[in-house]
């Protein structure tokens, strides 16, 4: 039988290499430079929509760095059942373990994301509107 310490060492090395490799690959694959003219235009458009809705307006640079010119993850099938489950998974308490449980979310919880969908992927707006219309809200954040 392989010595326990050696066995653990091998496990550590294998997992270490795996995660390091994954990290390196993800840095190369992840699109962290999303600035282009269309991204800037969309960011300005979103800024205007946010201001019109009375919401705080982040700097344009912050918007296009996150959303790029296509809305990024927000516009990746926002009404899809799995994505909906991710959204539902955020309308929860402060637990990070098995105590995670749904709550009655704040009124503002989905206001901003709907604006993004309307600006960046308007073709998804109607179905996404339906998703968030199905939710119940309250004014729980100060």
């Amino acid at each position: 039988m392989m010595d326990v310490h050696r066995e653990r060492k091998v496990t550590w090395i294998v997992l270490g290499i795996f995660f390091l490799g994954l990290m390196i690959v993800s840095v190369f694959v992840f699109n962290s430079n999303k600035k282009n003219q269309q991204a800037i235009d969309k960011a300005n458009q979103l800024s205007a929509e946010l201001a019109k809705a009375g919401l705080p307006v982040p700097e344009a640079q912050q918007i296009y760095n996150v959303l790029g010119d296509d809305g990024g993850a927000v516009c990746a099938a926002p009404a899809n059942a799995l994505v909906k489950s991710i959204l539902y998974g955020q309308l929860t308490n402060g637990a990070a373990g098995p105590g995670q449980r749904p709550i009655i979310a704040d009124n503002k919880a989905t206001e901003g994301v709907l604006l993004i969908v309307k600006v960046y992927c308007p073709e998804e707006a109607e179905s996404f509107q339906q998703v968030i219309n199905d939710l119940k809200y309250a004014d729980v954040a100060s």
Binding site: V27, L55, P56, Q61, N65, V66, V74, Q90, V113
Partner: peptide
């Protein structure tokens, strides 16, 4: 209100790092 724009926990971190121009930290 911007946090509520998130499409997952990662986007909140992305927005945080974007403030510092360090979105390379996100992955």
């Amino acid at each position: 209100d911007q946090l509520s724009l998130t499409a997952g926990v990662m986007q909140a971190f992305d927005a945080m790092f974007a403030q510092f121009g360090s979105t390379w930290l996100t992955p």
